[in-house]
Design a protein around this nucleic acid. Structure first.
Lengths: 159, 159
DNA sequence: TATGAAAGGTTGAACCC
DNA sequence: GGGTTCAACCTTTCATA
């Protein structure tokens, strides 16, 4: 099964908001799915409350904004501590994303934005202090994201 | 200087929208910064037009939504083709994120969401067909993101 | 960058299936 | 429980200065 507890309307809502979370009125989704706008708003609230939707974030071009040090820091954390450390890492100033990888050395991928190399050294030290071992560090040249196609219903109405 | 061409109002707008891009009215930002709501709206449009803000996306808990195969595919692309291939990769159905890494083997990190292992094999084949060499593949156990603190007004590192 | 009127979106309560 | 309706309220748009 594709999506637990989510019906076609939920999937279409997620799809629409993935494309533009700020400028997509409920009415627009409602018309496409032939329900009332309130139904769409009720569903959005349910998706938020039940944790399917964790938030609405900006996609920022950090490079254009003048932060040339957009860095991937590959770390190793002991498996029993990995989840807790990952949650602590995301609170380190400058860290914008943390991925916990299932296996292997380099099981936590952290992306940090820095203004200069001192800033990145400080981030590295903070991560070390938390208990990470840093195994590699590289500049991220670019990042692209794309809405997941699988939420777009049966495709008969995907844009 | 922290951010080229961005003043304190722009940074505060970015910060606010990073926290909640869907439910933050311009009026709220305007009051905090003591300008009119239309000034805030004009600035938001400028940030979009000039490419600082690339979009507004949902932060979805793919695991809760029933997609247990949230996978990091580490690939190598020849440097001259890297950018073009990265842009093509993001269009492969199931791919949700692509990071171009500056150096080394594994210079493109792709995250894909799959419903089953056939789906992921198909994605791997598609990436191969584009010209990527796949060097590693791992399940992403969890992913967290956090607004960049540096946009939050002038106290540069206390988020 | 600000203002103000018109257009359009959201909210919450009452109602129906 | 989930969907709908409607009126009051809030937000944005657009023209204007």
């Amino acid at each position: 099964m594709v999506a637990d507890g989510l019906d076609e309307l939920d999937r279409y809502i997620i799809h629409s908001l993935q494309l533009d979370a700020r400028n997509t009125p409920a009415r627009e989704i409602a018309e496409a799915m032939d329900v009332s706008p309130s139904t769409v708003r009720n569903r959005i609230h349910r998706l938020e409350e039940e944790g399917y939707v964790r938030g609405y974030h900006l996609d920022i071009d950090y490079e254009r904004a003048g932060f040339q040090l957009y860095t991937l820091i590959i770390c190793t954390a002991p498996i029993p501590d990995r989840e807790r450390l990952a949650q602590e890492a995301v609170e380190v100033p400058g860290v914008v994303s943390v991925r916990e990888i299932m296996t292997g050395a380099g099981n936590v991928h952290i992306v940090a934005v820095g203004t200069d190399s001192d800033d990145l050294s400080r981030i590295g030290q903070d991560l070390n202090a938390l208990g990470f071992e840093i195994v590699d560090e590289d500049i991220v040249r670019n990042e692209y994201s794309h809405p997941y196609h699988g939420f777009a219903g049966d495709d008969s109405r995907s844009n």
